[in-house]
Amino acid sequence: MTDPIAATALRATRLGRRFRKGWALRDCGFDLPAGRITALVGPNGAGKSTLFHLATGLLRPTEGEIRVFGADPVTAEARDRTAFLSQDKPLYTGFTVAETLRFGRELNRSWDAATAERVVRAGNIPLDARVGTLSQGQRTRIALALAFAKRPDLLLLDEPLADLDPLVRIEVMGLVMAEVADRGITVVMSSHVLSELENVCDHVLLLAHGGVRLQGDAQQLCEDHLRLTGLADPSRKGGLPSGLDGVDVVESSVTGRQLTALLRTDGRPVDACADDRWVTDIPSLEDLLLAYLRSAPAATPSSDKEAAA
């Protein structure tokens, strides 16, 4: 396998895709590091599924390009290294479990039958059961068995936990994480449930209105931000303290006399927050993502800077 530190698993350059209704993704650029678990976050219609479809070659970009370990997603090389679990977790309902596994074996150049059977057996799913008779959780397990047995380097999961009950969610995420621990694969995973991502993901890609709004190492991003709580300064617009020049205000709101704000400081000390009228702390990943999701207009951090200055 390639060096997981240095390599980029998924790279997009000025990536755009237009549908009849308009642009689903536009001018997206990002590098997702290999060997990491990236959370793909964004409101409905932000382009998450479109991005997955572009990364798997199910869809061709209208402009720009996307590369899987440097290869075009439609090449055999990229297909061999990528596994994708679509949001609707499609399977052939008329097939038995054994036939579904055979499907994987027949359609892939490398196939690890032992892994597939281990994952299926661990879920106590009989091999002769029809897929159509299985529960949603069992189907997800079969879909993961297909994905793992392919021995991918990049695993793309579009809302893998939707429609699953809480116990099955832990079970499914546990399966994925065990595979990560075992083989060091790169995972990109979207979810609406941000709290599910907190303990799982160590990298973030946040989309809004078809563009990249935030990306980077999860820990670093949290440390680059500051949550500010205190008495709103009535003499200033928005109640924010002075001395915030050059600091991005991601979100701020005043309730009564209290001001809460999320600032992007990029690790610089902020003078205004030093006095004891203000309580500052590092936001949790969930807090951070929520703040970015709430700050509606799809502006890049650099244009935020201009607005705040």
Partner: peptide, 14 residues
């Protein structure tokens, strides 16, 4: 209709 094309086309074959 069933979405299985996404399953088939993300295996190893074009």
């Amino acid at each position: 209709e069933s979405g299985t094309w996404k399953l088939a086309l993300t295996q190893g074959v074009g």
